[in-house]
Amino acid sequence: MGVVRRVLLDKRVLTGDSIIHRLDPRPKFFFFLWISVLAYVFYDYVLTALFLLVILALAAAAGILRRILLVLAVIVLPGFAFAIPILSVLFPWNETLMFKLHILGFELPLYYEGFTWGLSWPLKIAVCVSSALLFYLTTEPGELIALLFKLRLPYKFIYMVTITLQLIPLLLDEIQTIYQAQLSRGLRTKANPVKRIWNFLALVIPLTLSSLMKVQTRAIALESRGFSAPVRKTCLYDIRLRAGDHLFFSAMIAVTLLLAYLYLLYGFSPIVHLKFYYVAG
């Protein structure tokens, strides 16, 4: 199974104890939202790379740097690999020639606009992905539930989020069983695309049917335990803001002010001074 999937799966055995783990989930959550928004407010690959470095430094402090880098290698690196060469040559708004590349007798002009576009966007995504992982991988499931309670979300929503996260590993276990059974009945993974779709069906149909059976039973069990009672539900978990959390928040506010100042002064590209954010037409 792929790296990205494994990150979610391993969550079950992942518990850590670090400065980042000990933070209240609220500062971590707002940091994730905050830096993701910042990545979109600015269009400046140096600044975005700085954001990424800050996240990676925090990830290192939390002891999860390797896992995050692994995910980035799988879902962001190919972004650069495809986007930079293609857009450097073919981006319709290319005008500033960087240099000409000579391969196999061909002359390929590489342009700055396409190059920066192909560099900036995957970087933005890298910031968003790594900040999400930083939050998720350092937050215990109980803390996550407490966070959702504190955000005053309706209980139904909290329940749905939590149960989805718990259902996934259960369903994956079930897939393993079905997969083994189908393998022993002659399912082959090295097959042509049409055959592979049939393989997909052979796994997905039994899984879905058994899942649907569970839906009804669980609904009945929930109902029998007072799920629909029209009262405010009790949260069984405690979270508390400590000095470190306040410090973290203060740092975020200070940086926000600084960045706001830079934005007012230089616009969306304060360091490398790119010319346009969105393409026109």
């Binding site: 792929g2 989805t164 796994l203």
Partner: peptide, 20 residues
């Protein structure tokens, strides 16, 4: 939540079976 989880698991199954 079952739909949400099945969507996720569908993605995993695609990796497993290499369905296009």
């Amino acid at each position: 939540p079952m739909i949400a989880a099945l969507n996720y698991v569908g993605g995993v199954l695609v990796e497993l079976t290499k369905a296009p």
